[in-house]
Amino acid sequence: MNTLEDLKTAVINGKRKEVKAIMPDLLDSGFEPSAVLEQALIPAMSVVGERFKRNEIFVPEMLVAARAMKEAMAQLEPRLVAAGIKPQYTAVIGTVEGDLHDIGKNLVATMWKGTGFEVIDLGVNVSADAFLAAIDQHKPHLVGLSALLTTTMPAMKDTVAAIRNAGHTDLKILVGGAPITDSYAAEIGADGYSRDAASAVDAARKALAA
């Protein structure tokens, strides 16, 4: 019989087929869906994130693990919904208007998914209005803005202002991208900044706990 530990190991090693086979076995043998998520999948991705942070693995290996987790989530989600369990946090993320850089933003989205957040990725070149519409629709706890161009930093600032002006004063906003700094984040009224995808999880958890 398979254990949560087996599932965790399979996710860490990115063994999608194995994950696919283990999941029904686990779920049928009475493991709570929430336990599968919290004791196997999320810890697996956090191990992967740590390994990446320590430069023990590369992004391709991390993404293989993320896809294995996705495989598990596909089977787990209906059970979670049936049990009335919602993801603890919902996040909306996007690259600000005028900016097409998305490699970094995608990695942040992957890491947030890996930590169990529901992530709505709005893509690139996202206007302030589009962020506002997504906030109304998804009622997120967290919004992530990415900007890689010095010339789109003003758009990031405007987007934060638009969100705040729309009355979302408590909504946590995290920002990132090569030209962004801690002090810029503070200056434009964001709740946090992180310099890479691995620390984006800690930054999100810290902002949400505040």
Partner: peptide
Amino acid sequence: FTLPDIDI
């Protein structure tokens, strides 16, 4: 060369 942060 390029611009410093400025809205275009």
